[in-house]
């Protein structure tokens, strides 16, 4: 079975802060990590491979340094890695990103049985690229997958919903986005870590993927960022300090005044 796992390198968003003077992100010194939900997608692939054999290819689209995330994925047990990277792809929104990743999937030598994504990336939080790629690539899509078993013609997938879960039978090839509750990524092995360091990671750019140039990067993206700003700060706040009993007494008085108690 051939499984492709699409991963994204993201800044560790818990460590990103905003400069309230300039409204810019302070990204210096913020570590880059594999998007945490993509780790769950990778582990799902590894477990399927443990059981049924096959090959796992990890793909990432991003700047040259995203190669680091691919090496990490290899150290956890993926077999091959491909980096999609080109200046021309820069500034892509989820539409243009989905289009570009699909071109890479179409270029793979072996037919794909399953494409896995994390449920969303923690930097953009859009959850749009998985379903986008599925449609461009022409395969059925199940979002928020918690488990996946191989069946005769495809997969049986448990999908987390807003109020419980659904079970789907989906034919292969299929695409899934995977939730955190699915699993936890195994530790990398020392041997694989060494191999990952030396692994050859091909870089596919516009020359290799031959995209329709109107559909990539900034120009292929329907959405544009109009304005970026710091989250609003409340102006009429009251700060209390002192003895707990006094603070709480004053707070309760004010809450009753506002009729919320």
């Amino acid at each position: 079975m051939n499984i492709v796992v699409c991963i994204k390198q993201v800044p560790d968003s818990d460590k990103v802060t905003i400069d309230r003077e300039t409204n810019r992100l302070n990204r210096a010194g913020v570590p880059s990590i594999i998007n945490p939900f993509d780790e769950n997608a990778l582990e799902m692939a590894l477990q399927l491979k443990d059981k049924h054999g096959g090959k796992i290819t990890v793909i990432s689209m991003g700047p040259p340094q995203a190669e680091e995330a691919l090496r990490t994925a290899l150290s956890h047990g993926a077999d091959e890695a491909i980096l999609i990277s080109d200046r021309k792809f820069g500034g892509a929104d989820t539409w243009a990103t989905s289009y570009t990743i699909t071109l890479a999937l179409k270029k793979l030598a072996d037919p794909v049985d399953l494409i896995l994504f994390g449920k969303q990336a923690i930097d953009g939080d859009t959850a749009q690229v998985g379903p986008g790629v599925a449609h461009f690539f022409g395969v059925p899509m199940i979002t928020y997958a918690k488990s996946c078993e191989v069946t005769e013609n495809g997969f049986r997938v448990q999908q987390v919903t807003d109020h419980g879960y659904n079970v789907w039978d989906v034919e292969k090839p299929a695409a899934l986005t995977v939730v955190k509750e699915a699993n936890q990524l195994r530790m990398p092995s020392l041997k694989k870590k060494m191999a990952a360091k030396k692994a050859e990671i091909p870089v596919w750019g516009a020359e290799q993927l031959q995209p329709d140039e109107t559909k990539i990067g900034l120009s292929g993206s329907p959405t544009k960022v109009n304005k970026v700003f710091a989250p609003p700060v409340k102006l009429n706040k009251e700060i209390l300090s002192g003895e707990p009993a006094d603070m709480v007494k004053e707070l309760i008085y004010k809450l009753r005044e506002k009729k919320v108690l």
């Binding site: 905003i18 930097d123 953009g124 329907p222 544009k224 970026v228 700003f229």
Partner: peptide
């Protein structure tokens, strides 16, 4: 919100 809500972005589709 983007970047885990550290920043707000206004998006348009011209």
């Amino acid at each position: 919100p983007a970047f885990g809500g550290n920043i707000m972005a206004t998006i348009i589709c011209p």
